[in-house]
Design a protein around this nucleic acid. Sequence first.
DNA 1: GCTGATGGCGTTTTT
DNA 2: CGCCATCAGC
Length: 771
Amino acid sequence: MNNYLEELNEAQRDAVVNTEGPSLVIAGAGSGKTRVLTYRIAHLLKNGVPPSSILALTFTNKAAREMKERIAKIVGSQTARYLWMGTFHSIFARILRSEAEIIGYPSSFTIYDTQDTKSLLKTIIKSMKLDDKTYKPGLVYNRISAAKNNLITPTAYLQNTQIREADQASRMPRLAEVYKEYARRCKNASAMDFDDLLLQTNLLFKNHEEILAKYQQRFKYILVDEYQDTNFSQYLIVKKLALGHENICVVGDDAQSIYSFRGAKIENILNFRKDYPEFNTYKLEQNYRSTQTIVDAANSLIEKNKRQLPKRVFSENAEGEKIQVIGALTDNEEGYLVANEIIDTRMNHQHRFADFAILYRTNAQSRIFEEALRKRNIPYKIYGGLSFYQRKEIKDLLAYYRLAINVKDDEAFKRVINYPARGIGNTTMGRLETYAVQNNQSIWEIASNPDECQTAGLNAGTQRKVAEFIHMIEGFASQLTSMEAYELALQIASESGMLKEFYKDKTPENLSRYENVQELLNAIQDFSLNAKEEGRPNQLNNFMEEVALLTDQDTDKEEDFDKVTLMTVHSSKGLEFKNVFIVGLEENLFPSGFSGTLTGAELEEERRLFYVALTRAEENAWLSFAKQRYRWGNLEFCNPSRFIGEIDEQFLNLKSGGLQAHLPRRESVPPAKEEATTRRSPMGIRSQQGNEHLGKRLTRMNEANRQNAAAFAGSDPEEIQAGMFVEHQRFGRGKVIAIEGTMPDRKAKVFFPNAGEKHLLLKFAKLKIVE
DNA sequence: GCTGATGGCGTTTTT
DNA sequence: CGCCATCAGC
């Protein structure tokens, strides 16, 4: 064991060696948070604390794995193995499986992923004869998820007037019933969704004191990473468990709370002192990652946060280069500029491609940069998007495994009953499911019983086909305990007929599907061999327990060696690159899901300047203006369409804070063009004229909208057509038509061409320049 | 059931 | 635009 304490600065060392009692470690970005966590655990182990009494919770598998590896390096893998270290979900799934009986679940319960959940919700919504355009499965899921994460059970939901009112307001008055039905069906299917893993753990601890006591006893030391990202459900579990010994150490940074949209409660970290009055605070304030300039820039934004834990992040690194702001007239140009910059910087500084990252807000924005990089032969890798385990063929095969392990798993049943095709269509499935729901049973329980099939109304031929399928699955199920994972997995893949499907015709898609399935089988083989070596059980259900909570952010392939990284700003949290481009900032100009009412003045207030050049003349004025060289603040806009300058205070002090896009203000608009000063246009504007990229739908809707717009504004349709449709962002929604002549306090129609006839009524206007 | 036309709509993400 | 859901029509 090396002398790890010497590798720490004073603050870090304090946080590592003071292991007793409640500790709050506030860890600024790049301040060595992971190092402190791992060393703290190593320190505990070194001082004779048994690994099995340490519980360390993270948010991602990746974080857990990395930490475990680092600890293993210090204390040896034999010791590290017995740590209770993993994601909230995996740890509590493990506990739930071993306590399943007492809460009425089999220990082999299925974990429904997002897709399963949504598809089940959709079925429920349909069967309740509700409109799935009002009750959108995704939206319903969010509501139910939020309820669960606040520990609101269906019964409590029904009685909660506040929630009921909110449901009324969003025109989903029957949401409570949907929730209840959803919970019922999950139970019948012996399934839990992700939120259930936490909710059920809470219920388990609440209703069974002796079990809570057992785990309180067991976990003498509890550590939580990214505490600012915990939701209420997670918070409460931790709080209950910590009551035992109060040796709880939470690590986080209120300034890095970026997941409130998925239920993270920053209050959990802000209120730590209330829960544990006797706590110690450790502040990690020295940033080892970034230059002073960058730390200063970040601080100038963070200081605008209203509630925060006082800290002063500083860097002793060199001041470093200025932050550059580069503007582009179009998205294509933006891609081109970034690609060029990468090539230049790489040459001039001998950087590797892997030293570059391109960050954007949404995954959909990657395309333009992919194209630009490909054109310049720059290798890149993309994070996000469809993960391996979400591919259809993988989900299909996994569904067979799931069904074999838990035959009540209705979502798996529905997935594979007719894949490959067995002549069991929607009608049959509909009958089985309806009957099952009526009888409070899983589909399997009906389908596997000939009498029930008869009653459900299946004809003899269909009954035979269903029976064959049941027989096949029973065959798989019967071998679960006798065969090891890989053998059985392979057998199921082949006997289910799935492998044959890919041979039907040799399309590239089929080849790729086949390869993916092979990759899954290889993974199972690896799992099986490793498990055997380490003396753990190596059956298919053991593999499936792990896989349900796995995503493939983890799989770093060898071939990903020297490549530019493309990912969302969110997923870059905690990573380091020498060169970072934050692109597509103008996307923020348009609030998505935009449908409220705003006055022109409010828009001005919001600094969301999504206005359009209305007429042909005005548009031309803008375009010629954009090609000129001009200055705004410290930013110099260069010919033809780019500006490079230093980031300045004005930029950073933007009221809305964060990564809001910022646009030239009035002084940048040439005074010569008086017309143009009354309206602004963001960079990245693309007009309909001469723009062959406009979508087909826009073309289709064009005429109708033009007429509508003209009628509303009382203008000549020809005139309006000229600059009417301007694409402000890459989402179709962003195509805005503003109506000439409307003043800030007047209502105006804003047309979203894609929304077809139902245009939105907004108070919206020509933006008045207020200085 | 499969296919192509049509329409709708588009955050951030982990488990 | 690009993906997905739906539906008419075979």
